[in-house]
């Protein structure tokens, strides 16, 4: 992919882009459960885990393991850095479209 700016390789994979787009839509200060996110994306748990791992490594998502009552629950949220990366990514895509 060539263009005026380099597209963020972490987000530039369909599955991770969908993850980040979903988390961004939730808005700041909101977290979603792992099963809730999996359902929204229609991914397998294993596949989602792999992509979340890559996004977490890049500092784009925060994974919080906690308990709701006695049930262990995992929440996922976009970090500020992740939100900025997504905004930059969409801005670059729009730039590319304008140039095309």
């Amino acid at each position: 992919m060539t263009g005026p700016r380099e597209l963020d390789p972490v987000i530039h994979a369909q599955a991770r882009l969908r993850v980040v787009a979903t988390l961004n839509t939730l808005g700041e200060a909101n977290q979603i459960t792992f099963p809730g996110l999996r359902e929204l994306l229609g991914m397998t748990a294993g596949n989602l885990s792999v992509h979340l791992g890559k996004l977490e490594e890049a500092g784009y998502v925060e994974i919080v393991k906690t308990h709701r009552g006695r049930t262990p629950t995992t929440y996922v949220a976009l970090t500020r850095q992740g939100r900025r990366a997504f905004e930059d990514y969409t801005a670059t895509i729009r730039e590319l479209l304008d140039l095309g």
């Binding site: 530039h12 369909q14 969908r18 787009a21 979903t22 839509t25 895509i93 479209l97």
Partner: peptide, 17 residues
């Protein structure tokens, strides 16, 4: 994916959410 497809993917995912 082309930029158009990426943008469509983002918009579809946002709408679904």
């Amino acid at each position: 994916l082309s930029p158009e497809e990426m943008l469509r993917l983002i918009e579809e995912q946002q709408a679904t959410t």
